[in-house]
Simulated assay, not measured.
Amino acid sequence: MRLGIIFASACAIVALSAPARSAALLDYVGQCVPFARAASGIQIFGDAWTWWDKADGHYQRGETPRAGAVIVFARTARLPLGHVAVISRVVDARVVMVTHANWSRQNGERGHAEQDVTLTDVSPDNDWSTVKVWYRDMEGLGSTAYPTYGFIYGKALAHGASARPARELTSSDPDYVGALIDAYR
């Protein structure tokens, strides 16, 4: 009986710490990793910057953004654990929208989910190895350029099941014009 109570308590803690794949996905407040896992369906665990290596041999990886893919930010002084975000829309060759958590402050706190946020490729070789991200506090692209490893796609290799992105990944009416204005002003 005691073991059953401990197991039930552990399951409740896990359930509360990970976002549900439901309409409440965008109500999530917490770290980017559990959010990206729920939003993309890609089942990788660990700090965000470790996702790139952990995907090797399990999921396809590449340098081209696709809706539902996870972009993996490298670890830096500003991002000691890295960051992961899910591509919600491809706008043009150098501009995408992402849905992610724990980036901008909302109501004075970090951790909130944001949908269809502008992310632009600022790499010199147009390979998405360096990006800038829309930041709510500035109401535009942040001034910092972040290094990335690339994109992890939901297509599993070998015998794994392919990931299914959450239906709340993108809105029904994303602001493409606003994303382009943010990226090119």
Rank of each mutant, 00 (worst) to 15 (best):
M1V: 11
M1G: 15
I6K: 10
V14S: 11
A15V: 01
A20E: 13
S22Y: 00
A23C: 05
A23G: 13
A24R: 00
Y28S: 01
G30Y: 01
Q31V: 11
Q31G: 09
C32I: 06
C32W: 04
S40T: 13
G41M: 10
I44G: 01
I44N: 07
G46P: 01
D47S: 14
D47C: 01
W51Y: 05
H58G: 06
P65N: 12
A67W: 01
A67Q: 09
G68L: 14
V72K: 06
F73D: 10
T76F: 10
R78D: 13
G82S: 07
A85H: 08
I87T: 12
I87E: 06
D92Q: 07
A93W: 03
V96D: 05
A101G: 04
N102I: 01
E109C: 04
H112D: 14
T118N: 03
D121E: 09
D121A: 03
P124H: 04
D125C: 07
V131F: 12
V131P: 08
K132T: 08
Y135W: 15
M138P: 02
A145E: 13
A145P: 00
T148F: 13
Y153A: 00
S162Y: 08
P165W: 03
P165R: 01
R167P: 03
L169S: 02
G178Q: 00
I181G: 00
A183R: 03
